[in-house]
Design a protein around this nucleic acid. Sequence first.
DNA 1: GACATGAGTGCAACCGCTTGCATTAATGGG
DNA 2: CCCATTAATGCAAGCGGTTGCACTCATGTC
Lengths: 344, 344
Amino acid sequence: MAVTIRDVAKASGVHISTVSRTFSAPHLVNPNTRSRVLAHAEQLGYRPNRAARALITGRTYNIGLIVADIANPFFPPLIKAAESQARKHDHHIFVADTNEDPALEEEVVRALAKQVDGVLLCSPRMSNTLIEQLSREVPLVVVNRQITGIPAVAMDVAGGARRAVEHLIGLGHRRIALVSGPRGSWTSREIRRSATSTARAGNAELTIIGPNPPTEVGGLTVAEDVLRAGATAVLAYNDLMAIGLIEGLLAAGAHVPGDVSVVGIDDIMLSRLTRPKLTTVATPTAAAGRSAVDMLLAHGDDRRTTAHVHLQTELVIRDSTGPGPGPHSPADPGDVIAPGGVAS
Amino acid sequence: MAVTIRDVAKASGVHISTVSRTFSAPHLVNPNTRSRVLAHAEQLGYRPNRAARALITGRTYNIGLIVADIANPFFPPLIKAAESQARKHDHHIFVADTNEDPALEEEVVRALAKQVDGVLLCSPRMSNTLIEQLSREVPLVVVNRQITGIPAVAMDVAGGARRAVEHLIGLGHRRIALVSGPRGSWTSREIRRSATSTARAGNAELTIIGPNPPTEVGGLTVAEDVLRAGATAVLAYNDLMAIGLIEGLLAAGAHVPGDVSVVGIDDIMLSRLTRPKLTTVATPTAAAGRSAVDMLLAHGDDRRTTAHVHLQTELVIRDSTGPGPGPHSPADPGDVIAPGGVAS
DNA sequence: GACATGAGTGCAACCGCTTGCATTAATGGG
DNA sequence: CCCATTAATGCAAGCGGTTGCACTCATGTC
């Protein structure tokens, strides 16, 4: 049915190997022959069959991209950037959604392994051990994770979380809640680690709530817990949860940022558009997608280039954070200035 | 390197064809042999190479999914649903982003053609003729387009646009603007057609603004045009534009829905979260993704099943639409009731 | 003029797997 | 007990390419 290398060979009166070389090693064929072959190929609409080629070369020109949830607004910009970068290098990209399920991640990597040159594991939920094992079966680049010996693109969420907590403490908040993300998330652990030490250094109390599903609903449902904990400020695992949380807080009668300040992480497009506009830690997702693809493609050539790329994050202050009840906050109208009013 | 059918054959002491049949035609092999082969395969970690298999069977178990812009929030739910449905049938999915570029669409379809069982063209921008031609090279299902002879999943945006315009007219609006989408969009034409006739039937004036890029910025930049046209209500090609438009209107000092009512189309997640919450025509994107995959896979078997699936849409009334200046609207406090106040 | 050289091409094996056909052994009918 | 069936397996060709090797001719060199 489809036109093959043989058809082109017949049409141009050369052996199939010459046609093959015309495409994959042009310098080996006489310019005249080459142009004749190309003309016939063009005219017949010939396109090399990549799968067949891969069978012998081992290069598929495909990349697997595995994410926890396509519909989570964090991922689309990453996928878009990765796809674009991949195509720049003439690669196509498989996308798989694992629904936050570690077992599914493993299964998908294995299923894809044979037909890709490598796999991008974005925010994986599986164990390090398993990832290391898989990386022996297929070249792997992990995004949002750090594992020795495995090429990785990591965003500095720890630094972001630190700045977020410092921001909150600077506003006078002393009781802060951390709404953490899903089990198995490296990012979530980083955030917790960083937020914990920053809070301690700033003499603030940090209540950890979680793990939670990293969705709007996940945020919405912990609103009560946040209030019960008496927190006046919250750092959420991601923007989606922060937005859900704000909804939940409003529903419970708490004002944002009047009663509770909320900071998210990711700076998804949404966050500029909600009311109040979300204060958040911006992560360079598109850059992460591009870098990950670059690493994977570079990695293919010289083995053991297990570089780790680190990308900066940035705290974007908008309208969901405001002064807390601490010593630096303006006194409530009805309040009496307490004697010796300077707390430690 | 990787374990092949030969390794399994050697280990189990049978010919490779028996191993092959164990996986692709189990009923042809003796149960004892089969279980022995399976055991060895399992132990060696054997996985059939799909590309090699495809070479001879012609079935790749891959699907191509082509969208105009992954980052447009309309698409992720569709992609997610399609991917999930595809995997249910043991298929993997290639995702390609064409950046609204018709030429790129063609190129990508051709590039993918050989390694997929079919392609889902979502909201294509190319011409019908070209699509028909491509559908001769690879099985195609189009989403958001109708072409005779080509299987399609179409959402009833025309009906949605009609209900949206009727809603606006019912609120008393008589000068309505239609902010249309990108050139080449079937959806955009459907909306225009439907909105035009509905407006005419309702004695309202419809100003068409566009074509425009279907993005937030696309909406933002037409805010001025909308005001200049003197419209008190707008139907936008999609939610993203509607949201951008609202931003633009607010920036220009116009209140929504006080001065101008805005209706979007799609009901992306965002639309529930902005202020004001967007009135919009909800389109069943996930269902579309699922159906498209189903059609593609069904289509493979019996040729010429060029069914067209139609999916209903629904007008969701939220806070971005309000009474217009028409006869049914409450009089402005400062207004004098005009004599003979009933306009036609 | 003999010979090494290298450019250009053909030949054939092979990548991992499927499948039509041949072969063999076991089964049942007459 | 012989023969026709049938079940199970092996054999080998082939899917669409790539690639090491051998071969054929100009060339250039001495």
